[in-house]
Amino acid sequence: MAEQREHHGQRAPRAQRVYEDTGVEVAGGRLAVRRWPGRPGAGTVLAVHGIASNGLAWTRVAEELDGVEVIAPDLRGRGLSRNVAGAGTMARHADDLLAVLDHFGVDRAVLAGHSMGGFVACVAARRDPLRYSGLVLVDGGLGFPVPQGVDIDAVLHAVIGPAMRKLEMTFPDRAAYHGFWARHPAFAELHGPDVDAYLDRDLTGTEPELRSACRAAAIREDAEDELRNPEVFAAVHELTVPARLLWAERGLQDEPVGLYAPEVVAASGLADEGVALHFVPEVNHYSVVLGRAGAQVVAGHVRDAVDTAAARI
């Protein structure tokens, strides 16, 4: 297997980048989008979050990409896009991504996807390869089917655990919600204003009855598509744009073996299909983007994809 190990050091955090929040019209409503403007000609990254997340998951990566335009929507049914109507599928999200690019006048972008966002990215790049100059998949995009008859809720509870339990809970205030995640084993080392803002964006309602902004129906609809649709599984194997997969050492609940075990990556056939494989040690499924060290590694790959795309023009 053609694999590289990614190592990361520590450095002083960057100053917070200037950003803007806007809305983009899509079928069913208005999609909330966080955008970090870049320098003219420095390239654009369209960043897609995971199944029970929101666009602010990419904040620390964006901070590392100073000068590059980074656009991170809240997918329909999540965050500030909670009320966008319509069933969710990877294809529907891919349509929404095109609407985002068109809104900002972006002809081509590097597409980055974390977790379920990796599956969205693969479907989007396969469908519209002329709009994407490169693909960076972060612990997502490589899938394995869940048999019919197996309850999707049971699978989700087993795999993402607290991210499903939060859908059934209310919280008296923001501090209680932050405390809920502070007890999550994968969040033990995740803290700071970026993480707080990411968690706050996943809240709706008023105290003392705050709840997750993720719509349970949207989570289930996307999970059905992500875990049972053969076209979604095939997308990563049918890419025509340059792609790389970064896979974290540890899992969604900080298990010692990550979402993708080494033997699974080795057996995937992706290396033979031209997808570059990069093992990222000392991070878990969440800290690979939400943690400072993980974000530095991810941003390095994204910047390389942007620079490589520019060199081909």
Rank of each mutant, 00 (worst) to 15 (best):
D107L: 09
A47S: 06
N54Y: 07
A2K: 13
Q253L: 11
A94D: 00
P230D: 12
P262Y: 05
A47Y: 02
S53V: 04
V275F: 05
Q4M: 13
A72M: 10
L80R: 15
V68M: 07
L80N: 13
R220W: 00
A182L: 00
D107W: 05
R35W: 11
V120K: 00
H184Q: 01
L210M: 10
W247I: 02
G192L: 05
D254P: 03
D222H: 03
D107Y: 06
D194T: 14
V298A: 02
P230M: 10
P172D: 09
E25D: 15
G251H: 01
L239T: 01
A197L: 15
V302F: 04
V257S: 07
V159K: 09
V232Y: 00
W58S: 09
M116K: 10
G43V: 09
L135Y: 02
V123M: 05
V68N: 06
A299W: 01
C122L: 07
R11Y: 12
E255H: 07
L111S: 11
Y19P: 03
V106W: 03
A175K: 06
G41H: 11
D66S: 15
P230R: 11
F279C: 09
V280T: 05
H114R: 12
Y286M: 14
G274N: 11
P13L: 08
V24L: 13
G88D: 03
G251L: 02
G77D: 07
V70R: 05
W36Y: 15
G23Y: 15
G134P: 01
R165G: 09
A217N: 04
T89K: 00
D202K: 13
G258N: 07
E224W: 00
R211K: 14
G86S: 07
A2C: 10
I219M: 04
V306P: 06
T206H: 14
A310N: 10
R303S: 08
N83R: 15
S53K: 03
N284G: 07
R60Y: 11
V257R: 10
T240R: 13
G300W: 08
R108K: 15
Y260M: 10
L245I: 03
L167C: 06
H301F: 08
G118K: 08
V110A: 08
V288E: 01
A85H: 13
M1A: 13
V48G: 02
L203Y: 11
A293V: 05
E69D: 14
M116E: 08
E231P: 04
Q253P: 04
G291L: 00
Y19T: 15
T170M: 03
R11H: 15
M116S: 14
V123A: 05
P208M: 10
L98F: 00
R228E: 04
N83D: 15
F171D: 01
V146H: 07
G23F: 14
G143D: 05
A112S: 13
A218F: 00
V257A: 11
L270N: 06
V241T: 07
I51L: 09
S53Y: 08
A261K: 11
L246E: 03
R35H: 12
L31H: 13
T22P: 07
R17I: 10
G294T: 02
G140V: 00
V123E: 02
R76L: 08
H278V: 14
A243E: 02
E224D: 11
D96H: 00
L80E: 14
Q16L: 14
L56A: 14
V302S: 03
L75K: 01
A85S: 13
L75R: 06
D128C: 14
P185Q: 01
A305T: 10
H191T: 14
